[in-house]
Nucleic acid binder design. Structure first.
Lengths: 191, 191
DNA sequence: CAGGTTTTAGACCGTTAGGTCAAGAAAGGT
DNA sequence: ACCTTTCTTGACCTAACGGTCTAAAACCTG
């Protein structure tokens, strides 16, 4: 009962996410968010309690999306090293696809907000741990396949990969693709 | 001639730098900057044309300071691997020294501003290249000392180290020291 | 189709942003 | 001692911030 929503929440969320991603949390105003979503500010605030809550939902959407992506990438054929290399390369290349560098929403948020907001920090940490988990799972599979030395600590190496990825997405703001590809090769050299 | 400055520019710059570092560019207001520096807003604007110009000078101060630091660290005794490991560990540990995580001003600025501002992006890039240069120089020395395999490409490995460092300072926002130390060990394992 | 309920758009609000300005204070030159 | 110059402070300015509210509109139920 009552007037139905004229917009799809997920679409609004997705557009808002893009805005936050390109401009950062502080530098994205409610007016911009509403504009990007194609609805009025009042409607935005009717659907989401605050800028902050909207942002958290955007973060979550981002996380779900990259989760899907990661799942797919980790199942690609090839050796563990090829698979992980392809995955990192495809993420880096996607950074260069758009007209503006914008890195990773999760990493950017870690930098912008984790230091001032313990709740956000915790959320971000969980998301990062998920990434590490996907890497670790792929490495463990590599060890079962006899693809990766069993001397290697999957957890430690996965952390290294997460760290490398976090670095790449900062470096992508100011470097060109060949440099980043070389970094990927070096980071994977000990596999 | 004229009334003399009641404050030392470098001190004001240094305090402003701390404020920008902990809060980010957008989230640090002129009022906060003046407050942190212990002078009135008017005086701040008399000494520096704009928030933007002040920020650029802060960035430069930061860069000069870490340049000094890096120069010292790269001259520490020990093997190349020990030296680089100690250097990375000491940077990471310094992230945990203060009450609030705040990462690296240069990396944070890359994330916050490089995507929207080509001039800042260039500045940041030059600073990052300097870091890579210091790493490369130390690795080359290691090769001359017979400490590091001559098969290793110093430039490529230095880029890998810069990337690892960029990652570490993002990860430091949400992770504890032991994880980061393990990452350092893994990143250096192929030396 | 009336009544109840929710959504819509945009006017509106108090606060703060980044920045300017005017009045006085502190120096050097003559 | 006075004049010029520069600095200092806090009041002041406009625009934008994050958010609220109201009146009209659109749907569902009975």
């Amino acid at each position: 009962m009552g007037r139905p929503r004229s917009f799809d929440d997920e679409v609004v969320l997705s557009r808002a996410m893009e805005a936050f991603w390109t401009n950062g949390y502080a530098s994205t105003s409610p007016a911009q968010l509403a504009g990007a979503a194609g609805i009025a500010k009042g409607s935005l605030y009717n659907a989401f309690a605050s800028k902050r809550e909207l942002f958290e939902k955007c973060l979550d959407l981002y996380h779900r999306q990259i989760g899907e992506l990661a799942k797919g990438l980790m199942e690609h054929p090839g050796t563990t090293r090829e698979c992980l290399g392809d995955a990192l390369r495809s993420v880096v290349d996607s950074d260069f696809a758009g007209p503006r560098r914008r890195g990773c929403l999760i990493g950017n948020t870690a930098v912008e907000l984790a230091g001032q907001d313990a709740e956000i920090a915790q959320t971000i940490r969980r998301m990062q741990d998920d990434s590490t988990g996907w890497f670790a799972a792929r490495i463990e599979r590599g060890q079962r396949d006899g693809d990766v030395s069993s001397d290697l600590d999957p957890r430690a190496f996965a952390e290294h990969l997460s760290n490398t990825l976090a670095g790449l997405r900062v470096m992508a703001m100011t470097h060109e693709a060949p440099v980043l590809h070389r970094i990927i090769d070096t980071a994977l050299a000990l596999l």
